[in-house]
Design a protein around this nucleic acid. Structure first.
Lengths: 192, 192
DNA sequence: GCGTATCCGGAACGAATGATCCGGAACAAG
DNA sequence: CTTGTTCCGGATCATTCGTTCCGGATACGC
């Protein structure tokens, strides 16, 4: 975890890691609005030290969520590759929301209309890109209602993020709600 | 519109009305985060005057949204009284979202988890109360999928509020999306 | 141990924003 | 017009939060 760059003091590297750990902790439980001072305090460090390692709060956010975003994207890529596009779509949505539920900063960053830090620039693009193929395949397989576009699903994810925010303490609640809504977009054998 | 209280200077009453009008304007277009100074400026008045008439920003918000909330509640009550519970439910949701789309402060106030000003205290309660009856009747009439509870619809409204926020410029977009999702909760003749 | 380059921590800055103060202007009564 | 009450407006306070500064402490090479 410590930076491999040469010529750095031992305690500096330790502080870097402690700040990063504290940032991950607070950002994931309290969201993007977390005060930088709190992070520094939890890390047992002064604000200046924090800023020495991460010149901007945005940099800190980026570093704190990088792993989670990477993991999220890996999960969604896997979901998008599923043979059955419908179950892939469900997995995609559920894993996206699970990521948001686990890491409130991701929730904040993805859901914020425009005030989102640069750390989340690529998220919407990524979302749309993966969804495009998945939705197309689901339409081909006839398991997704034909009026539903990729943009619709993308919006739906943001909308369900709001559900996650209001039921953060019980994962079952948002999961149930998500399945309820997704089920409404499903074309079952019983219909038609 | 001017306060009926006796013994008030005419310019004070005029200022009261101008502040209220400015507040309505900016709160509805920019949301709750609007700076109080902007409102005062638009009203052609100093901040102190604003605070003289509305001792707190929260009071100002309350006054600015009171009519809209009343109108919203009237609309939803009417929707809740419809014979066909399903179309009543759809009207309920759509009118709620239309209110939020028209008045961003209402959107902010209702969607905010806990930071909502006191002006929106009763909203969730009201929402739930009206939805309870509506959902029960829809279940009796067999037009709403049986797993869907009033709490689900309540959450759904908040979720769709996020859609409104992301498609604020085009009312068609959120309306279409809303119908898409609602349609998924509908029990049609074709199913079962 | 000692000197030096590196790093640290808390105070302080600057901007945003809700709220208050006070000298003076505007209105109403006679 | 005079006078006294009411009201006004901009400066100001207080708080929050991202960010920077600087005197002092610390680790590392010898």
């Amino acid at each position: 975890m410590s930076t491999g760059s040469r010529r750095q003091r031992w305690d500096a590297a330790r502080n870097h890691d402690q700040v990063l750990a504290a940032a991950r902790d607070l950002f994931s439980t309290r969201g993007l609005a977390t005060d930088v001072r709190e992070i520094a305090t939890l890390a047992g460090v002064g604000v200046a030290t924090l800023y020495r390692h991460f010149p901007t709060k945005d940099d800190l956010v980026r570093a704190a969520v990088a792993d989670d975003l990477a993991e999220w994207w890996a999960l969604t890529r896997r979901a998008a590759a599923e043979e059955d596009a419908w179950s892939g779509l469900c997995a995609f949505v559920e894993q996206t929301l699970a990521t948001m539920a686990r890491h409130r900063a991701v929730l904040d960053g993805v859901m914020a209309p425009a005030a989102a830090p640069a750390a989340f620039e690529a998220c919407h693009t990524h979302l749309r890109a993966e969804l495009d193929g998945l939705v197309r395949r689901a339409h081909q397989q006839g398991t997704l209602r034909p009026e539903v576009s990729a943009a619709d699903v993308s919006l739906l994810v943001l909308a369900l993020g709001q559900v996650v925010r209001h039921t953060a303490e019980s994962p079952d609640a948002w999961r149930r709600h998500t399945h309820l809504v997704l089920d409404g977009l499903h074309v079952r054998a019983a219909r038609r």
